[in-house]
Design a binder for these strands. Sequence first.
DNA 1: ACAGGTGATGACAGCGCTTTCATGAAAGGC
DNA 2: GCCTTTCATGAAAGCGCTGTCATCACCTGT
Lengths: 344, 344
Amino acid sequence: MDEASKTPRGRRPTIADVARLSGVAPVTVSRALNLPDLVNGETRQRVFDAVSQLGYQANTAARVLAGSRWGTVGVQVPSLDHIMLRHQLQTFEAELRARNISLLISASNYDAVAEKEVIEAFLARGVDAILLTHLEEPDQIYDLMEARGVPTVMMASPGTPRAIRKIGYDDAAAMGEVADHLVGLGHRRISMLGDSRAQLNGAARVNGLAARLRHHGLDLPDHRVIRCGHEEAEAKAGFDGLMDVPVPPTAMVCGNDALALSALARAQERGIAVPRQLSVTGFDGIEVTGHPLISLSTIRAPWRRLGSGAAVMLLDAIEDNTPQNVTLPVEFIARGSTAPPPAE
Amino acid sequence: MDEASKTPRGRRPTIADVARLSGVAPVTVSRALNLPDLVNGETRQRVFDAVSQLGYQANTAARVLAGSRWGTVGVQVPSLDHIMLRHQLQTFEAELRARNISLLISASNYDAVAEKEVIEAFLARGVDAILLTHLEEPDQIYDLMEARGVPTVMMASPGTPRAIRKIGYDDAAAMGEVADHLVGLGHRRISMLGDSRAQLNGAARVNGLAARLRHHGLDLPDHRVIRCGHEEAEAKAGFDGLMDVPVPPTAMVCGNDALALSALARAQERGIAVPRQLSVTGFDGIEVTGHPLISLSTIRAPWRRLGSGAAVMLLDAIEDNTPQNVTLPVEFIARGSTAPPPAE
DNA sequence: ACAGGTGATGACAGCGCTTTCATGAAAGGC
DNA sequence: GCCTTTCATGAAAGCGCTGTCATCACCTGT
């Protein structure tokens, strides 16, 4: 077997191998693959044949070095086991994979230091763009992104005054729907079990509820609000704290579904009938809330659309389109955990 | 300002810029950064200063092209919204991030063609290793990995005769525990609602149950097994198919928790009391199974340990350690969905 | 028949880094 | 004092690809 026709073994085939096999210059192979219009149909076919025969695939690093894009975007998440994030990521990934873009995903663990490291790692790896989903210190990161000029999209986080592309939904408006529903059922004493971890979201939800209640002539005094972590024990303690007061509420609005599930569990343990004695609402719309044994009234946020929307936005951002700010609608789903309050 | 000391503007600083600023050759900069022991302490410091002054970060494409590691591993998953996978990925990611390794994650959508594309994309980008979690056509992919010589670990998938590093748990043994539990409670007529999607897992679980029942002198006839997809409607139809027979079972073993949840839902709809009239078991141990309103007896697979174990294994694989095959123990958790069968 | 396209292809340089080999200086052994 | 080691650094090549420019053959209109 002479040198010229030798098939590479072990080594990955390079553009030179393809060129040799198809009897053209390497540059013609490159053209056949990237700018097919510029090469003669017959030649092109020969190249394609050689490509498939060798199983050739261009070396991405070499391509990038020679001037093109990595086709890789960095995705920052608080944690990979986040219950809703997976839906957002799923559609986001699908949308981008269809365009041959790969995802570099890193978790920042709700930690400001780790979060910065994650972003720097993305930058070091030369990603074409970055998707942000949860920041502990947004400003620090935004500054970094601006300094580097990397296209960025912030997903599903509440508003910020900074001029950054973002796509999300309106926490306050969603809580408004919850308020409308409960007040419509006749509730006057409403408490809120809020999430203390996602500070910004948590605050937006509490404030949104308070604002809408005020609109109905009700208020949400501080003693009717407890914000706690997502641990079940903490949530249950929060539940107790809200119920063990002289005049307990007839409805408990929870900052997210996990808290609501804990509230339901605690109510069950304490023999408080839901919804007869107490109405409970969630927020997020995780699947299990629809299970007949749970049947939690909740807000369904548009997780999947958020993901695909973010993908489109990011693609625009890479092409350097103007920044935009999309807000997706949410939907309240009334199920079996809410009912009119008990007669006094 | 003379040419030699000019700070690059607009352009990203390159190794040459750092070299110029610190008065050494580019190669010394490279060494100071990658093999610091080989350069004089004083020189090294000058280089570091220049690096931080310029904010220099090595160009990844160039590094990779020149032969070093990218510090990135590819992770193939069936879908990013997979309910358990997120736990595995969470610990896997944490373990690798601690070592400065990033994750390129792609979903193959339970599709053989997409799955191959995903792997090829990893290969094209030059990942240092690959984690596989669910393959439609394992052999095709294993061949590819072997041909390219990329370190690979298969996670949480049932055994294969192929010599590949893998970490998982024993589906059959787990189902054996379920069988023991139910038979111990006195059940004789046991049906199984299996998962049709994850072919291999599904089969291993059905077979594991059958084998252990046989050991107890019972059998699992074909008419007591229905395998269906994960859609709720399908699962419910499967439930009906198993119950609407002349002699219905007293226990229903489900191939995963999602199926079990659907079974519980359907039982509730049909007024079949669980566990008084029918015992139900799941498999996977998703959080919600522990909720008091659900209280599903199930198998808890070691998801998180699977993830961290896979990470360690992959790291070993990169260093070219010998292939291994780890099997993690599973645990049956008896909850409120199982009880002795009703008296006949 | 000839200048001026047009179409197809190739030669060459260079992207920014690392690897290999060469060089020179300092240090040690006889 | 000369030769061999060690240490520190540099020069050069090359990773695999794509951009640019050059080349050559062929065609067109006059």
